[in-house]
Design a protein around this nucleic acid. Structure first.
Lengths: 340, 340
DNA sequence: TTGTACGCGTTATCAT
DNA sequence: ATGATAACGCGTACAA
């Protein structure tokens, strides 16, 4: 679909060349006041608006950003982050193009798709850093921001949460409450957050001089941050002769699954077992008992990713972002530390 | 950003005109096998991919769809529906452009934005049907699909849930359980789902020969489907001399708020008060007691909206959709009908 | 079978 | 102050 009225129509009706119209459109000074006035009138009359696509073709700037997704939109993390993007997008002049990747095509190419759509920059969501498509993007000249994938390049940076501190806060909280047997249930080693959280857990063990007990670690490779996996892992832990008194989970959903396993086993979460989650999704404040968790600032992640992307586009020398958005310990009831 | 290599580069390297390259690109028969072969080779070598934007300029088809949002991405309804869109989008050849509306500009124009971006069609999410922007869209030639707004035009249709049946199912369920005092807490008369649900409630009253008690209806105009509003409304109801024994809520969040109000008043939901929600968001199955609710098929709504939009684009005579996606009663615990 | 010329809607250079 | 003209990357009728 093309514009109903083009710059040609405006020019014709005013009786000037399209060059002149273009000049008033772009605020050039060399056009007489009366001509400018007439042009503006016709523009209003015709409800004309310049075609940003055609403009992009000649200017080399499309005023559009691309976004790639692995998981779907209906995922608290994705939708939360995109919520943050939306606000930054408005009034920025940029539109956001969801680049739908055909799952059919085996050698589908991210970079090609970007060029084909003329996007000025791209946001990439939660892919593995080994993905050859990402490697290509990183090496390219296209400004790109990765969320939760620690890839960098001349024009590529990333945004993620400060997962390390998050895990530390969780462990410190438990430690202060007297826990010495702190288990860990998490997922997906091959994605940044999974890796970092696990490493932080190990580091935390040393930090608080806690013993390394491999039975207390459930982080199978193929794991995903789901309720079901949390449930299964917790069941295994509960079957241990000497079971942990507390568990740090890689996600709220896993924590919720773990809570279910405890309740099923007749344990009271918050008294017999302390559990802390990660994310602080809506659900976390609605469980019984309410979940103590590490909050990720979804909106800020989204906001920063767009801000940095635009900044890189505007300024060729802007350094690619490497930012860790602070996490926060939200104390509720699942560690038994409140009156309940 | 423009393509690294253009059709010109290919032509030059092969030693033919760009016309010939274009022909192999578009599968024209009139090109010799060897020429075609050479062209294909260079295309691979250069990792060339035609610029879909430039192509759109000349063909009048951009292979892109627009989407307007009132609320943000981080809303169970929006993200759920978009999840359904995603799957249909992949392999469809279309990309989805989030059209960010500058909140600054008072006379920002949807249609203009669409033309400016050359989108082939547009999905509009949850605006009021009185919105002048929507009126303009409906009257235009641009294929458009409205979600939860019953607007139609020559090239415009809508998709929504079968809210009416949903409310009926809820009321019938309560009626069968013996309830005769069925209250209604809902919101936003000016949006389609709000209106339909309320009308269905009134109709249900007649259907089941229940008395019209205005005290049992909380549907203030400015209301939004939030937990807080559900909470407030329930409190008011509980203060009634003769209070209802059951409540149908316009959303799960409202139902959750209502549950909180009941518990605060010392009532046991499921025994002293039956509550049914609407939506079946993730949260609904995690409340205590678990929420009985009317499920909307988010994904199907998303799927259908894209399918119909594409079909309208491909076929100028395709009738605009007017579809109501079935809803479903999900019986859990909040009406006291299960062992708990 | 191949290439010329024009057009899509716009901006930019350079005369006039 | 204004307007040809070329260009952006591509498709296509028509001529060769």
């Amino acid at each position: 679909v093309t514009s109903l009225s083009s710059i040609n129509d405006v020019a014709r009706l005013v009786g000037v060349s399209i060059t002149t119209v273009s000049k008033v459109l772009n605020g050039y000074p060399d056009v007489s006041p009366k001509t400018r006035k007439k042009v503006l009138e016709i523009i209003n009359e015709l409800k004309f608006q310049p075609n940003v696509v055609a403009r992009g073709l000649v200017k080399g700037r499309s005023w559009s950003l691309g976004i790639f997704l692995t998981t779907s939109f209906d995922h608290p993390f994705v939708s939360g982050v995109m919520g943050g993007m939306k606000e930054t997008l408005e009034n920025s002049g940029y539109d956001l193009i969801y680049l739908a990747q055909g799952s059919k095509d085996p050698d589908y190419d991210f970079l090609k798709h970007c060029h084909s759509r003329n996007v000025d920059g791209v946001v990439v969501f939660g892919f593995s850093r080994e993905d050859k498509n990402l490697m290509e993007l990183v090496k390219s000249e296209l400004p790109s921001v990765f969320i939760d994938t620690n890839l960098t390049g001349k024009r590529a940076g990333y945004i993620t949460s400060d997962n390390r501190s998050g895990i530390f806060m969780a462990m410190e909280h438990l430690y202060r409450l007297g826990h010495r047997k702190i288990a860990f249930i998490s997922s997906m080693q091959w994605l940044l957050p999974g890796r970092v959280r696990f490493e932080a857990y190990l580091e935390g063990l040393r930090k608080f001089s806690l013993p390394y007990v491999s039975d207390y670690m459930e982080i199978r490779e193929h794991y995903i941050f789901t309720k079901e996996n949390g449930y299964e892992s917790m069941r295994r832990m509960l079957a241990l002769k000497e079971r942990p008194t507390s568990v740090v989970c890689g996600s709220d959903l896993m924590a919720i699954g773990a809570m279910a396993a405890c309740q099923e086993a007749g344990l009271k979460v918050g008294r017999d077992m302390a559990i802390v989650g990660f994310d602080d999704i809506e659900l976390a404040s609605h469980t019984v008992p309410k979940l103590t968790t590490i909050r990720q600032d979804f909106k800020l992640i989204g906001k920063k990713s767009i801000e940095h992307l635009i900044s890189m586009i505007k300024n060729p020398h802007a350094p690619p972002p490497i930012v860790e958005v602070p996490t926060q310990l939200i104390i509720r009831e699942s560690c038994g530390d409140t009156k309940n």
